[in-house]
Design a protein around this nucleic acid. Structure first.
Length: 215
DNA sequence: TACCAGGTGGGAA
DNA sequence: TTCCCACATGGT
């Protein structure tokens, strides 16, 4: 089964995921930029479950503001307090403050390159690709733990980040919605079925596996 | 109790 | 280059 056929199967099974989730009403009400929520969320979600990130985002909405400007102005201790539920709060508070001290608005980042993003502290390949794809609509496929696991299990491919990214970008049509949805669908599939300890019994795609997990 | 979760950076080998 | 470890909270 080709990669695009796997994508179509996931889409039929789970439907569109609509990533990246942002609170549009909040941003309309506050006059803030939803792209900044994506940047903040991308840093907060590093090695962290999305539920814990949501707790942190809610704290920020209730006691601060979901904007880069807020992270530039707020004290480090206050930021730590707000983002505590997302874990690694010392590191992440520094990363957010550093980022916001360099870029105070998403508008300043509209033409930023992947290489420039990667030079920023706390921005690795996955976070850079999330920001490029979901905040700025650039064709940059995101590889995360779920994606690596998926492509190994369904296509037998293992490799470093750039190898996997190149593979997806070579095989897929240059279509923003496909890039966004496929990554989101893989994460959904990996979170609920194709886990570290896979639930093959409940999985509709078990017959498409390249690596036999269900024996 | 142990493992996992929408990673990154620094240091050792 | 590659591997290992620290970073931390919360769910299963």
């Amino acid at each position: 089964m080709s990669l695009i056929e796997l994508y179509e199967s996931l889409l039929r099974l789970y439907g569109p995921q609509g990533w990246w989730p942002v609170d549009s009403k909040y941003h309309i009400l506050k006059g803030t930029d939803p792209r900044e929520e994506i940047i903040i969320g991308a840093i907060l979600t590093q090695n962290t479950s999305w539920k814990n990130v949501e707790r942190a985002l809610n704290n920020i909405k209730e006691q601060g503001e979901l904007s880069l400007r807020f992270f530039k102005l707020a004290s480090l201790d206050f930021i730590k307090e707000l983002i505590k539920p997302a874990g690694f709060y010392n590191q992440k508070a520094h990363r957010l403050k550093e980022f916001a001290s360099i870029f105070q608005s998403a508008r300043e980042l509209e033409n930023i390159s992947r290489e420039e993003l990667l030079r920023l502290p706390g921005i690795g390949q996955e976070t850079a690709d999330c920001i490029l794809l979901y905040a700025f609509g650039k064709l940059s496929f995101v590889i995360d733990k779920y994606t690596s696991r998926f492509i190994y299990r369904y296509r037998g491919i293992k490799g470093k980040y750039s190898t996997l990214k190149d593979f997806f970008e070579r095989e897929l049509p240059k279509d923003l919605e496909v890039y966004k949805e496929f990554h989101a669908l893989i994460d959904y599939h990996g979170k609920y079925f194709c886990k570290s300890a896979p639930l093959c019994g409940a999985c509709e795609l078990k017959d498409c596996l390249k690596v036999d997990l269900c024996a």
